[in-house]
Simulated assay, not measured.
Amino acid sequence: MNGKKAIVIGASHGWGAFLGGRLAEEGWEVTAIGRRSKPDLPDSAALRYLQADLATADGYQDVERELREQAPTLVVYNAVSYGPRDAKLPPLADLEATFKINALVPYHLLLNHVNQESSAEFCTYVVTNSDSIYHANKYSGIYAASKAALRVLTAALASACQSHHAAAATLLLGPLADKENFEKLQEVAERTGADLSVVTRRYLGKSNQAYVINSFLSYESCVKSVLTIASLGRDANGMLCKVDGGSSGSLV
């Protein structure tokens, strides 16, 4: 290995699993962490998997220990809770759980690692966020609010990194080319007889009128963004990298 060590938190499937696999291909020694017992990760000598549920005290301690002992040069926090997604009044405990995973845990976990100064190696923290902070509604409001809190707390983390050998940046993502998204739209296309590209374009236009894209954003573009952030060193501190399809509008 070349000394590049990455920890990807929230990497058992989807975008996180893809990132873990691609970092391994790029020569990183990767620890992928996820809640699922059977991760959707490629076989690679450069990649190991740790199962941990950050909603529990034991899971948090396992990840905290991994950060301390592995001394990574790159940490990507991608764990997420979508929480209640209907218009009814959800239990308060469900709201607290969403904010815990999406905002409080990443801030506390990464700030703790920054303050430990456990390694002489420079470490870059990349926190995955969502363009939902720009267009919340009654169905996504709790999730969007937790992500807005994460954005503010990541800025606070960057402030803490200023006096340490570290940098914290936000990777803000728009609609990704997830398997689930394709399957849902494919079902609509087959039911209506419309072309999938037309259905996708209409879906994106309705979900956010500020989008200037006609298709979902690729995982590969997100990987390149992470690698770019990691290559910037201290200059990445406080950075907001948006791969969002223009969802925040032209003046933001």
Rank of each mutant, 00 (worst) to 15 (best):
A6N: 02
G10N: 03
G10D: 09
S12M: 08
H13F: 08
G14V: 06
L19G: 02
G21W: 07
A24C: 07
E25G: 02
E26C: 03
G27Q: 06
I33V: 15
R36T: 13
S37R: 14
P39T: 05
L41Y: 06
P42T: 10
D43H: 10
A46G: 04
R48D: 09
A52I: 01
T56D: 00
A57W: 07
A57L: 10
D58R: 05
D58E: 15
G59K: 01
G59R: 01
G59Y: 10
Q61E: 14
R68N: 12
Q70I: 14
P72Q: 06
V76L: 13
A79I: 02
S81W: 03
A87S: 15
K88E: 15
L89T: 15
L95H: 05
K100N: 09
I101T: 07
A103I: 00
V105A: 03
Y107E: 03
V114C: 11
E121Q: 15
F122G: 00
C123F: 08
C123W: 11
D131E: 15
S132Y: 12
A136R: 05
A136P: 15
Y139M: 11
A145E: 11
S146P: 03
S146W: 01
A149H: 02
A155H: 13
S159F: 12
Q162D: 11
Q162T: 11
L171N: 01
L172G: 03
L173P: 00
P175L: 12
P175C: 07
D178G: 01
A189L: 12
E190P: 01
R191F: 09
G193I: 08
G193E: 06
S197A: 15
V199E: 05
Y203R: 00
N208Q: 06
A210E: 14
A210G: 00
Y211H: 04
V212T: 13
S218E: 12
S221Q: 14
V223R: 04
K224H: 12
T228Y: 09
R234H: 05
N237M: 11
G238W: 09
M239T: 00
C241M: 14
D244T: 12
S247M: 14
S247L: 07
S250M: 12
S250I: 14
L251Q: 11
